Simulated scan of single mutants.
Amino acid sequence: MRLCVVLFAAMSGIVAGCSGTMQGVVRGEGTPVQFQYEQGVDRDFYRTSIDGESFSGQAVNAGATSGVGTVFANGATGTVLVTSSSGNFVAVLMGDRGSTMRCQMNYADSSGFTSMGGVGICQHSDGRVIDVTW
């Protein structure tokens, strides 16, 4: 299920914030793991529960770059902020019982719009690997 709520964020220029679910499976066990996400302005927030332990954390764009460029139009020049994204996100989730998970997510939309889907992999601090899709 995906839920998008239209927001107006004058300071950030972002117009949509979304939330939804990601489906995961523990590799070799087949145990399902459901993740919840909320798309933020400059990062996403993930939550899940495994074996009764609640995990939460944030994902940041690992391939983002930014810089300043010059544009020429109608005989005038201007300066613009130029950004690019690879759609590759890295997340660290902290468990409420001391465990951690590190996730590498590849968003289908290279700009990082989470609700467009993607695939990923998370590794639990006990060594288990969770394959994720949404």
Rank of each mutant, 00 (worst) to 15 (best):
T31E: 09
V71T: 15
S12I: 06
G112Q: 02
Q58R: 11
Q23I: 03
V6I: 12
T79G: 07
Q36N: 13
F35L: 06
F72N: 10
S56I: 00
G63A: 09
G69V: 05
S49H: 10
S12A: 15
G24V: 01
N74W: 03
V26Q: 04
R43A: 15
A108L: 08
T48V: 04
S54L: 11
T114R: 05
V60W: 07
V60I: 13
A73Q: 12
S12M: 09
M105Y: 15
G24P: 02
G95N: 03
D96V: 08
L3D: 12
V82E: 13
M11H: 12
F113R: 03
G13W: 06
G17A: 13
G75S: 09
V82G: 06
M101Y: 07
G95S: 05
Q23L: 06
G30D: 08
E29F: 09
A76N: 10
T83S: 15
V90Y: 07
S85N: 14
N88M: 11
T83H: 07
S110L: 08
T21M: 07
G20Q: 01
T48S: 08
D51M: 00
Y46N: 00
A91S: 14
V33G: 00
L81P: 02
A10R: 12
G69A: 11
D51N: 13
S84W: 09
G69S: 10
V25Y: 03
A10S: 15
F72D: 10
N74M: 10
V15P: 05
S85W: 05
V26H: 03
G69P: 04
N88E: 14
A76H: 11
G69M: 02
V80D: 09
Q39K: 01
A64D: 00
L81M: 14
V80P: 10
V90M: 06
Q23P: 00
D44R: 00
V80R: 10
T100W: 07
Y107D: 08
G30V: 05
S12Q: 13
L81I: 13
I14F: 07
G40T: 01
G112T: 01
G98R: 04
S56C: 06
D42A: 12
A64W: 03
F35C: 02
S85I: 02
M22H: 05
Y107A: 07
P32H: 04
A91N: 04
F113S: 01
A108S: 14
V41P: 01
V71L: 15
G57E: 05
S99N: 13
A62M: 07
F45I: 03
V25G: 01
N61E: 15
N61K: 07
A9I: 14
V92L: 09
A62Q: 07
M22Q: 04
A59M: 08
Q36W: 04
G63I: 02
S84I: 03
F45C: 00
C103H: 00
V26W: 03
A16L: 11
G78H: 05
N88Y: 11
V25T: 15
Q104V: 13
A73T: 10
R97E: 09
I14Q: 06
E38W: 00
G87T: 03
I14C: 09
A16F: 11
C18Q: 04
V5P: 01
R27M: 12
L93F: 05
S110T: 09
N106G: 08
A10N: 13
